[in-house]
């Protein structure tokens, strides 16, 4: 892209009461991504423009917004791939807008918490007091790794037509994370978590439009997770499968954080030649 090129950025703005489109014409020098463009506008043209950002490398999940009609991360959307003379930027759908491009994420966080997104063990104390790691293979890890890529950017929720109709729907993010722990070879919360997602606003609300997977910037593929979880739930209901035994640690439990380790004496006899 030529350094002297200019582009028009249109931003859907909101100040608490009024909504409007605002246009900025801005040079593309030093600009790669839409986030660069927004930063340039904020620094050079309009200090009042509000948007979230942080890592600039697609890992923190801050900069989700709807760019030219599709929910995307601004830092991961290059101007060149948009292939348009005008960049239209709106706040994410399906979440309440607070100011300009910033939306409230309360329901994202609450729904994520609802599905118990952590390792559940029959013996809870194993988590803190086992002397070593669970024995898991790389293949075992692959069963959930993809779903663990979730950066909680809210894009899937912005894209999901079911969330649009039923704001109480658990949503692709939370359901995807339920499956992430369900599929973890160390987890023993299989039955518990399946009961959680089988709810009026739960898993059967999903009709597989696949929009969540389509916009996911990290290949979490929530649509896949949700359909596979439906299969697990049916197995449970048809009594084909009753539960799941997690990977084991056979050694006896022991205190993890000991005075001994805090006050270990330095080695006296260790010599290092170089």
């Amino acid at each position: 892209m030529n350094g002297s090129d200019e582009i028009i950025l249109r931003v859907r703005r909101f100040d608490g009461t009024r909504e409007w489109w605002q246009s900025y014409q801005i040079g593309l020098t030093g600009v790669t991504s839409v986030l660069d463009l927004l930063n340039k506008v904020r620094e050079e043209k309009d200090h009042t423009l509000a948007f979230r950002q942080s890592c600039h490398m697609g890992t923190c999940g801050s900069c989700g917004m709807v760019i030219n009609g599709k929910p995307r991360l601004a830092c991961q959307t290059n101007i060149s791939e948009l292939d348009a003379g005008v960049v239209n930027v709106e706040p994410m759908h399906n979440s309440p807008v607070i100011k300009d491009l910033v939306v409230g994420l309360d329901s994202l966080i609450e729904n994520h918490k609802k599905v118990k997104p952590y390792i559940i063990r029959g013996k809870k104390e194993e988590i803190f007091y086992a002397p070593r790691e669970f024995e898991v293979t790389q293949e075992g890890t692959t069963q959930f790794l993809q779903f663990d890529y979730c950066i909680m950017c809210n894009l899937c929720i912005s894209a999901c037509p079911t969330v649009t109709i039923d704001p109480l729907f658990l949503g692709p993010q939370a359901l995807g994370q339920a499956f992430r722990y369900l599929a973890d070879p160390r987890d023993e919360g299989w039955a518990e978590r399946l009961e959680l997602v089988d709810d009026d606003h739960g898993i059967w609300r999903c009709h597989f439009a696949g929009a969540c997977s389509y916009v996911c910037p990290k290949d979490v593929d929530p649509a896949k997770a949700i359909q596979l979880m439906k299969k697990e739930l049916l197995k449970k209901r048809l009594l084909i499968r009753r539960g799941k035994k997690g990977a084991e640690i056979t050694e006896p439990l022991q205190p993890h954080f000991t005075e001994e380790k805090l006050t270990a004496a330095p080695p006296l006899d260790f010599k290092r030649g170089d």
């Binding site: 390792i119 194993e126 086992a130 669970f134 293979t137 790389q138 380790k261 330095p266």
Partner: peptide, 24 residues
């Protein structure tokens, strides 16, 4: 010295709370 002595348990604790360390 204290730091290196406590590091091991941390890696293992994180494994047990769900971290997908690469495996051999």
């Amino acid at each position: 010295w204290r730091f290196v002595n406590l590091a091991t348990d941390e890696i293992r604790l994180l494994e047990r709370i769900g971290l997908p360390w690469n495996r051999r």
